[in-house]
């Protein structure tokens, strides 16, 4: 009887598990922990040598490959 009940609601289980998995996939797509701290540190390092206007850090996931793309905009005045 119990196993019959489980079988009956497996679509509901699928929906709940998917909702959580996809939510976490979407969150992880472009950010990662301590991103802001890392941003500040990189700015400090670059600033030692040249002017920095802005910095943009992105984590890019492409299949099995993950890359960190760091865009430093220089202050050229």
């Amino acid at each position: 009887m119990f196993s019959f009940f489980n079988k009956k609601s497996s679509a509901k289980t699928a929906k709940d598990r998917l909702t959580i998995a996809i939510m976490s996939d979407r969150q992880n797509a472009n950010s990662f922990p301590n991103m802001d701290a890392m941003k500040a540190e990189i700015i400090e390092v670059v600033k030692k040598y040249m002017g920095v206007k802005a910095i943009d850090i992105k984590r890019e996931v492409n299949g099995d490959m993950e890359a960190l793309s760091i865009d430093v905009q220089l202050d050229n005045k």
């Binding site: 079988k7 009956k8 497996s10 679509a11 509901k12 699928a14 929906k15 998917l18 909702t19």
Partner: peptide
Amino acid sequence: MVQSGEMLASEDILAI
């Protein structure tokens, strides 16, 4: 399978 609750229904998939 959808009727017996063993397969995701289209409204569930659309909501996700």
